[in-house]
């Protein structure tokens, strides 16, 4: 499940339905040069996982988008949790902020919660490209000065970090939708499938072919 939502004041990458059960996905990100307009990254730094939609919009609106993400997380669970959409991940883009419509947050939350809305990216300069790799796939989504790599190949966070390095844009993020991290009974372990180096190299080569 991968949805790209475009609204007049932001774009959103939904990695899962907004109200899915407690679950996280392995993730990594990379900032280049002086990029710093990022909210919600500390939990990624600590746990290397993400359970929030990725909200991308003008840097001047980053606080407002974060606030909307908090509303969504509270709606999922009043206590919020790292596997229930907290913290929101907001990427501030280097682009001008439009005037916000009235009820902008309601509009955003309705779009996120909509079970049917499918929207391609339409903002100028944004693009989406998908490659098939055997039975797997890799998708690149460029939004403003950010690149998102999304794949179903089983990768660990450090491997995802290497995928981030393929992009030359100021901000890049890589996430695998394979084998989400679910809550387990106390003391139990889960088993993850991890791509070997050769397979990872093929993935990185495919990513490289999709441009800097």
């Amino acid at each position: 499940m991968l949805r790209l939502i475009t609204l007049p004041f932001c774009r959103v990458v939904m990695l899962a339905p907004w109200n899915e059960p407690p679950r996280r996905r392995f993730v990594a990100y990379r900032c280049r040069n002086a990029f710093r307009r990022l909210l919600g990254h500390a939990v990624i730094d600590e746990f290397a996982t993400l359970s929030s939609p990725v909200l991308l919009g003008p840097a001047a609106l980053a606080g407002k988008l974060y606030d909307a993400g908090l509303s969504l997380a509270h709606r999922r669970d009043p206590e919020m949790a790292v596997d229930l959409g907290w913290p929101p991940l907001v990427v501030g883009l280097d682009e001008p902020a439009p005037a916000l419509p009235t009820r902008w947050q309601d509009l955003l939350l309705e779009a996120l919660a909509s079970p049917v809305l499918e929207s391609e990216l339409t903002a100028g300069g944004d693009r989406r490209e998908r490659r098939t790799l055997g039975l797997n796939w890799l998708e690149r989504v460029d939004v403003g000065d950010a690149t998102l790599w999304i794949t179903d190949v089983g990768l660990l966070p450090k491997q995802l970090g290497r995928l981030c390095e393929v992009s030359a844009r100021p901000f890049s993020l890589a996430v695998t939708l394979s084998q989400p991290v679910a809550r387990l009974p106390a003391g139990r372990s889960a088993t993850f499938t991890v791509a070997g180096e050769e397979r990872l190299q093929r993935l990185l080569a495919a990513a490289g072919e999709m441009g800097p």
Binding site: F47, T49, G154, L156, V181, R183, L184, A186, G187, R188, S189, A190, T191, F192, T193, V194, A195, G196, E197, E198, R199
Partner: peptide, 18 residues
């Protein structure tokens, strides 16, 4: 050989909250 060559291998991990 599995690390360098094979398509995939498996690793176990404790639940993060544990």
């Amino acid at each position: 050989r599995m690390f360098w060559r094979d398509a995939a291998y498996h690793l176990a991990s404790l639940e993060q909250f544990d």
